[in-house]
Design a binder for these strands. Structure first.
Length: 271
DNA sequence: CCGACAACCTGACGGC
DNA sequence: TGCCGTCAGGTTGTCG
C-alpha cells in the first residue's frame, strides 16, 4: 500500500487533473470490494466540480461543489491510473472530466474503498473518526509519543502501526523509522527512554518527508496517478533487506514476524 | 489491555 | 510450461 507518502503523491498527482474540473462521467464497473461502494456513486458525482484534493492519514479526500467529499483508500494494491490506454480488468471506477481526462481506480485485491459523504461529515466518518494526528502536522511530537507509549506493554512496532496513535504509518515506514531511531521493533512502548522517543519523533517525519520527496515509494505494483515510473524509492534502509548488511554497521539485517507482519531491523543498532 | 490469527482478494515469484 | 506454496503496502473482527 500505499502508506502516507504514496497517498500524498497520488493526491498531488490528482490535484492538477481534477481541481476546478467537472466530472462529465463516472462509471462504476464493480462496487463489491471489501467495503462496497455506494451504488449511486456515479450518479452523485456526475456533474459535480472538484474543489480540492487532499489527504488525511492514508485516505484521499476529494471535495466537490455539491458539498460532498469522496473518501478513497487504496488498500494494499489500489492505484489511480491516469488516462489509461484501455480499461483494465481491475479498473473498478472510471472518472472522466469535462476536459476528457480519465482516471481509473484500479485495485486487484479489492481491499480499497470509496465512499461519498457530506463534506462537513467527512471527519466524523467511521473510517476517519478516531484516527490520530498527522505525523507531518503540528500536533505530532515527542509529547504525543510519550503519552502514547507510557506504561504500554505493546511493542513499538504495534504502537506505531496503530492509526489511533499516529496517522498514516504502515509496515514499511514503521520499520524505517524504528531503524532511524535505534529502537528494536519488539521493544515494549513503556520501556523506551524519553531520549529515544525524541529520536523517534524526529525520525517519523524525516522518513516520510524523504519518501514524499522521492515521489512516494513503490514495491512493485504502485504507481503515481500519471503512471510515471522512476517513482521507486530504491533505498529502504532495512525494509525487505533480510540478510543484507546494515547500512550503518554492516551487521546482517534480521526479520521477525509480529502479529503476522514482517519487521526488518538491525539487531546491533536497534535495542 | 494485549497479541495471535483469520478473513477479505489477486498476483508475483521461487522451487520443482 | 505448469502447479504449489509463500508472500505482499491494510483493516477489522474474534478469541483467549
Amino acid at each position: 500500500m500505499p502508506e502516507l507518502p504514496e497517498v500524498e503523491t497520488v493526491m498531488r498527482g490528482l490535484a492538477p487533473v481534477w481541481t476546478g474540473r467537472r466530472f462529465a462521467r463516472v462509471i462504476l464497473h464493480r462496487g463489491d470490494l471489501r467495503r462496497p461502494f455506494p451504488a449511486d456513486l456515479g450518479q452523485r458525482l456526475t456533474g459535480a466540480s472538484v474543489i480540492a484534493c487532499r489527504r488525511r492519514a492514508k485516505y484521499g479526500l476529494v471535495d466537490t461543489d455539491r458539498g460532498d467529499t469522496l473518501i478513497l483508500h487504496l488498500g494494499m494494491s489500489g492505484r489511480m491510473r491516469l488516462d489509461p490506454a484501455e480499461i483494465g480488468k481491475h479498473d473498478h471506477v472510471v472518472f472522466t472530466t469535462d476536459e476528457g481526462r480519465t482516471v481509473a481506480f484500479n485495485d486487484a485485491r479489492r481491499f480499497g474503498s470509496l465512499d461519498l459523504v457530506a463534506t462537513d461529515m467527512a471527519a466524523a466518518h467511521p473510517l476517519l473518526a478516531g484516527i490520530g494526528p498527522e505525523p507531518l502536522g503540528p500536533d505530532f511530537g515527542v509529547g504525543l509519543l510519550v503519552a502514547a507509549f507510557a506504561d504500554r506493554l505493546a511493542p513499538a512496532k504495534a504502537l506505531l502501526l496503530d492509526q489511533r496513535v499516529v496517522a498514516g504509518l504502515g509496515n514499511i515506514y514503521v520499520c524505517e523509522a524504528l531503524f532511524a531511531a535505534g529502537i528494536h521493533p519488539a521493544r515494549t512502548g513503556g520501556s523506551i527512554a524519553r531520549a529515544r522517543l525524541k529520536a523517534l519523533a524526529a525520525a517519523v517525519p524525516a522518513v516520510l518527508e524523504s519518501a514524499i520527496a522521492a515521489g512516494g515509494s513503490s514495491l512493485r505494483d504502485h504507481a503515481a496517478p500519471d503512471g510515471t515510473l522512476g517513482y521507486f524509492q530504491k533505498g529502504f534502509q532495512v525494509y525487505g533487506r533480510e540478510g543484507e548488511p546494515c547500512p550503518k554497521c554492516g551487521t546482517a539485517i534480521e526479520r521477525i514476524v509480529q502479529s503476522g507482519r514482517s519487521s526488518f531491523f538491525c539487531p546491533r543498532d536497534q535495542r
